[in-house]
Design a binder for these strands. Structure first.
Length: 584
RNA sequence: GCGCCCGUAGCUCAGCGGAUAGAGCAGCCGCCUUCUAAGCGGCAGGUCGCAGGUUCGAUUCCUGCCGGGCGCGCCA
């Protein structure tokens, strides 16, 4: 049960009934009504803003309406008290029995606790990583990969039908440069002397293997051919090799996709012409001359007529070019075609996860999606700010030019997949992230990965001890759920239950706003509530989980401990992180 | 010059328009014969960058400044 949604439904039901009875105006907008945990424990268990939201529409004073609603809610099952407070809140205090009953929900649902039909099966396309297939992934790519993957899992848990998609940028000049780079390595593999890698080509060592593989496959066939003969072949060969490399990196990170879409395939199938035809019909394309950007005009700027999309009609700052000066399509044109393709494949909701360097393209892409879908599609773009790789507080030196960018696989080798994934999700995507390789492995409470994993390991440890201490006792989640939990009466126990019972709301909220990092903060909070209870048992031995001469209280507490393990594991599953059984 | 993001405790950061703004670190004081002290409890610490506006109510939304990051036709 989502406690908050349950009571929201109750209050909205009461309001509808009052509207029908003529006690309130008809057709009130109840969409902004919500229930949330009050800031102060003393204010009860749940608070609603219903009276304040409706007061104006209802033509009543918030406090008066609050009094009426409180009266209606007071008689609901499990409600001990319904009180008005502050500017018009209604605060509910629920019975301890009600809260204890949530443990049975958790034990019955297992790691699916928190799953809901909030999304009602609506289809969402989440596109992420989508890097140029010109080399292995480096650490900066990992953030987008993990955020996209966790966001997709989160949406699935909240009841959306999700497609995880990767757009292969295999059509532009970058992959031609890749092909030329491979050709050099190919000549090298056949014994040729190639000297330094020219500016503009890819110097990475990883292309030596590709060149060698090409030499093994095709022999000397491309040595004396003109570029026009070998470029398409070697380009395809190289892109395939790079995608194999990238998929292997993603596999190490535990990131997988449902669909890979090739930009080149889309372009060659005429997708761009079709998309732009749609825009043309709506008079959204014209030939014009752009003003140079003020303050930072490129040195070789010269005014020239271009094929432009009327992005300014949809909130962008300037109209955007669709063709390069050589007549080929600009990347943006392909991206318009790609988003139209996604829309036509049945995704009215699209989420793109991009790197910080693409932030300047958000407006034009949103404008284009509005234009091609006639306002029927929604595009959300998550911009991942930079990751600063640190080691014990000192930045790790990286330079793209010198090729010393740290490869993702090196970082995974050093700290492990789960640590990389969790750390990448500890901050909002909008803010830069410091990733300290030393701090990430520290076993202390400063390290959120450790802190959360430790809570799970502790819970599992208690359950193992219980199995030894009570041989033959039925300790499965189902057996624990069937047992009475009324002996859970301490405030720390009830606080922990309330924290666990908030999990479905956290999932729903995080999914709604597309912010997976909220899960990390929740997990930290749940872990803290558990660690607090654990230590309370150190001060007061009657609060220990295992009480040898009192099986009733022990079994009740084991239900709570099992529920902690389940909720933490449920959250980690959204992150794609494996919960650990022990940390010795 | 323009656009986007950020600005909250000494530091790192939470806080989808609500009540007395929270957590960790650092500082100070406490808690291990017992399920993992790799942890917990307490104290202290704030003009929520500044100034206006909208609102019953603004850290949250809007506008303008200030400071930092990223980006800025024919790269992807």
């Amino acid at each position: 049960m989502n406690v908050f949604r349950h009571f929201r439904n109750l209050v909205v039901g009461e309001i509808d009934a009052m509207s029908k009875a003529g006690e309130l105006p008809a057709a009130l907008d109840t969409s902004r009504i919500g229930f949330e945990p009050p800031r102060e424990r003393g204010h009860g268990d749940l608070a609603t803003n219903a009276a304040m939201v409706l007061a104006k529409q209802a033509g009543m004073k918030p406090r008066d309406l609050a009094e009426i609603l409180a009266g209606k809610l007071a008689s609901k099952e499990a409600v001990l008290r319904a009180e008005t407070a502050g500017p018009g809140f209604v605060n509910l205090t629920l019975s301890d029995d009600f809260w204890r009953a949530r443990l049975a929900d958790i034990l019955a649902a297992g790691v699916d606790y928190g799953r809901s039909d909030f999304g009602r099966g609506r289809r969402v396309n989440v596109e992420y990583v989508s890097t140029n297939p010109t080399g292995p992934l480096h650490i900066a790519h990992a953030r987008g990969a993990v955020i996209g993957d966790a966001l997709a899992s989160l949406l699935e848990m909240a009841g959306f039908e999700v497609c995880r998609e990767y757009y292969i940028n295999d059509a532009g000049g970058q992959v031609d440069a890749l092909a030329r780079s491979t050709h050099l390595r190919y000549r090298e593999a056949l014994g040729g002397s190639i000297g330094p890698i020219p500016e503009g080509l890819y110097p990475g060592e990883y292309l030596k293997d590709v060149g060698a593989a090409l030499a093994a496959r095709d022999g000397t066939r491309w040595l004396n051919e003109p570029e026009s003969a070998w470029l398409p072949v070697i380009r395809g060969f190289s892109v395939d090799a790079m995608m194999t490399l990238i998929r292997a990196d993603l596999d190490l990170l535990g990131v997988h996709f449902d669909v890979f879409t090739s930009e080149r395939a889309l372009v060659e199938a005429g997708g761009v012409e079709r998309a732009l035809e749609t825009l043309s019909q709506r008079d959204l394309i014209y030939v014009g001359v752009l003003e140079p950007p003020k303050g930072k005009a490129p040195e070789d700027w010269e005014p020239r007529p271009q094929t432009l999309f009327r992005a300014t009609r949809f909130g962008d700052d300037v109209d955007r070019p669709l063709k390069k000066s050589d007549g080929s399509w600009a990347y943006f044109a392909g991206d318009i075609a790609y988003h139209l393709d996604k829309f036509r494949r049945g995704f009215p909701v699209m989420i793109d996860v991009w790197g910080a360097d693409h932030a300047g393209y958000v407006k034009r892409m949103k404008a284009a999606v509005t234009a091609i879908s006639d306002g029927q599609a929604a595009l959300d773009i998550k911009i991942c700010q930079l990751v600063r790789l640190m080691r014990a507080g000192q930045p790790v030196k990286m330079s793209k030019r010198a090729g010393t960018f740290v490869a993702l696989r090196e970082v995974i080798d050093e700290v492990g997949r789960d640590v990389v994934r969790f750390i990448m999700l500890t901050r909002t995507n909008d803010a830069p992230l410091d990733f300290d390789l030393v701090a990430a492995l520290e076993q202390s409470r400063d390290n959120p990965v450790f802190y959360v994993q430790y809570a799970h390991a502790r819970a599992r440890s208690v359950l193992r001890h219980a199995a030894e201490a009570m041989p033959g006792a039925a300790l499965s989640p189902a057996a624990l759920a069937a047992h009475s939990t009324r002996r859970l009466t301490d405030s720390a126990e009830l606080d922990l239950i309330k924290t666990l019972a908030a999990w479905p709301r956290v999932v729903e909220t995080a999914a709604e706003v597309h912010e997976p990092h909220r899960i990390a903060f929740y997990l930290h909070e749940a872990a803290a509530a558990f660690h607090a209870l654990w230590n309370k048992g150190k001060d007061d031995s009657t609060l220990r989980f295992l009480v040898s001469d009192d099986p009733e209280v022990t079994l009740a507490r084991l239900a709570l401990v099992q529920a902690v393990a389940i909720v933490v594991a449920s959250g980690l599953r959204v992150f794609g992180v494996v919960p650990v059984e022990e940390m010795r």
